[in-house]
Amino acid sequence: MGPFLCTTSDVPEGGRKSVQPESLPELVVCNVAGTFYVLAATCSHGEASLAAGRLLGCELECPLHAGRFDVTTGGATRRPAKKPVETYQCVEQDGGLYLTDAASSAASASQAA
């Protein structure tokens, strides 16, 4: 199991939360109807944290220019955003949310890049 992200009760249904696990980029945890999704928080378009944006169904909206991303795939769904953001696998255990091992190594790799 990878690093701890947050407790599941920190992110109610329809909510999103910024998390900053050590030596990883800022991530955003989204709760869509009870399922948790984790994405890289920095918008692919400009300098903004998606964690400060609105979660609309399964779309996370950038607070800067209102580009949107499908949290289930990371794909950009509305302009001006075009490039996807990275998504990460997570697991739930005892009320805590953790990155999977594979996800955390991918994340540190992309952080290093």
């Binding site: 378009h45 509305r78 302009r79 001006p80 955003a81 075009k82 490039k83």
Partner: peptide, 23 residues
Amino acid sequence: LPMLAPLHRFLGGGAFATNEDGY
């Protein structure tokens, strides 16, 4: 075009190419 308002960014796409950064 990609920024001003909803119809600009949505309908504009039919006539305005953007580069991979969305500009």
